[in-house]
Amino acid sequence: MTPTEKLVNRLPNDVGGLPADPIQRVEHELEPWEKRCHALADVLDFHKIINTEEKRRGVEALGAEMVVKLSYYERWIVAFANILFQKGILTPTELALKMKEVESRSSEG
């Protein structure tokens, strides 16, 4: 298999058996937004707007670089946005404008 074929065939999350570093026993309290993001994932699955398996696929579809560089819930929320665009539920413009609104709201006061 050529290197590019390998890149296509092996999903970025498929790490079982790959060489890896010693385990660092790290953990952190979830940030409030991370917990909301988890709750959002569950609710999206309950309604089958984005089922759990779609979420996993959406994270893999971010590609190897983002899977490595983004944190766990950063991957989730970006994957949700992409899937909602694909499904025609949201548009990129709509989300961008809403993000500006949220940002300006939170910088007031």
Binding site: R36, C37, L40, I49, I77, F80, A81, L95, K98, E103
Partner: peptide, 10 residues
């Protein structure tokens, strides 16, 4: 911000 925006839109 992205999480809040996605949630509020939905």
């Amino acid at each position: 911000i992205m999480e809040t925006a996605v949630r509020e839109l939905l």
